[in-house]
Amino acid sequence: MKRTSFRRVVVPGVAALVLTLAACGGGDNSADGEGVAGKVAVDGSSTVYPMSDTAAEMLKEENDSIETSVGFSGTGGGFEKFCAGQTDISDASRPIKDEEAAVCADAGIDYTELLVATDALTVVTHPDLAVDCLTTDQLVTLFEPGSKVTNWKDLDASFPDQEIAGFIPGTDSGTYDYMAADVVEHDSEALRDDFEVSEDDNILVQGVAGTEGSVGFFGYTYYEENADKVKALSIDDGNGCVAPSAETAQAGEYTPLARPLFIYVNNAKYNDNAAVAEYVDFYIENLETIAETAAYIPLNDEDYSATQDALAGIKG
């Protein structure tokens, strides 16, 4: 008797589950009979992810038969999958490294680098700190490995007597790589290791906003969203103090912290898989709208036409 009552509960339950699955499965995947269908796999930098994901969402509104997946496993992790042929497109917040390019070459993967946007890496401090501008040299002294600077007045006599607390991105991020390799340019390609580290930029924002004398850096979008909680420093690279903004980054004035964001396209997949070609073409065609929707800084005209030329070069 017990068994019967058990069955009475379980069987309808299972049936309901199966029906739900079937109902969900039959949803809106039906091809509309026109246009391109297929699958596109994108992975890589979590910084570029919002843009590539915006492109995927906008493309889906136009063509529902292209199934795009956009991952966020980081620039390095993205290239690993890309050079193993597992993804069609790799997002990157820095150019491909020589050793990564060698892996791609060994696997016989030809790729094209497309510049898609500019990011202004933003150095921020606690809003009450009486420091507004750093020279590039001071920036290097502050972040270089083994740095002995622990008080703002060590950096410049005019700065306040205030202990420094640092909050910086983790070593896996392209943001850390860029600061280490392209700004600090120390041989070890590392930054000082006594600062607080987090892979989650929102944690960095909270750290900087909640600690007096704090300093940190992250992508411009995170600053823009939190401009009321933290203060952005201007950077003096020899031509006076330049504040991070869409205009200064676009015009190439915000050096050395304006960094390029790329997508890498697998040439063979672009030419063989119509869905990949459709996605990349759509992405580049609507680049400005996509960048703005994802709250990134669009390319200037010169860079945009260079990207268009590079795209035209893929078609073999």
């Binding site: 949803g27 992975d43 956009v70």
Partner: peptide, 17 residues
């Protein structure tokens, strides 16, 4: 490597999140 998708799964070989 589960990634963001905007399609409902239709089978065991569907991309999924």
């Amino acid at each position: 490597g589960l990634a963001t998708v905007r399609d409902d799964p239709t089978g065991i070989e569907s991309k999924v999140t």
